[in-house]
Amino acid sequence: MTSRTTRADALTCEVVELLGEVVGRYHEEYDRAAAGHALTGAQARVLALLAYGPTPMRQVAQRLKCEPSNVTGIVDRLEARGLAERRPDPGDRRVKLAAATDEGLRTAAALRDSLGDFAREPLARLSDADRAVLRDLLRGMLGAP
């Protein structure tokens, strides 16, 4: 087996740098808005996910690309503030669902409203056609159909 090392060309370097800049800017604005609601960025992201509906704890961890034990701690802190609660899954009582409370739903909506323009709608400057091209390119990068 042969190992091949290639140097990235200038265009590749620029694209990688721009992707990093987009992600960094999104997280900065999101974390700033979260702090305005006395939440960490991770707590805000979990609360935003739970605003879509009760979600199994393991699925929250998968969506956020983190360990289930991290989600447990985040949900604990959201529960302590009355923003989330745990419920048994009606379909499988062994599974715990995390759910936003009414106050959590209000906070998630207020958080979304307080996001900067870029974090609220990062693709707003792109046309529908450009967003479709970007989606297809990203899918290609990830090897997704």
Rank of each mutant, 00 (worst) to 15 (best):
N70D: 11
K65S: 14
G73E: 07
V71I: 07
R93H: 12
A98K: 02
A61I: 07
C66T: 14
V60N: 00
Q62C: 02
D89H: 10
V75H: 10
G82L: 04
K96C: 03
L83C: 00
L78K: 03
Q59M: 12
G91Y: 12
G73V: 00
V71K: 08
A84K: 01
N70Q: 15
L78M: 08
R81D: 14
A98D: 06
Q62E: 10
N70H: 15
P90I: 06
K96T: 04
T72A: 04
A61L: 07
R58F: 07
A99P: 02
E79A: 04
G91P: 04
P68N: 10
A80C: 00
I74M: 12
C66K: 15
V60T: 11
L64C: 13
E85C: 03
V71T: 15
R87F: 05
R86Q: 01
Q59C: 00
L64H: 12
G91S: 15
S69R: 12
C66H: 10
L83N: 08
R93A: 12
R86V: 00
R63H: 14
A80F: 00
E67C: 11
R77A: 12
E79T: 01
D92Y: 04
G82Q: 01
D92K: 02
Q59G: 05
I74P: 07
R93Q: 13
R86F: 02
P68Y: 00
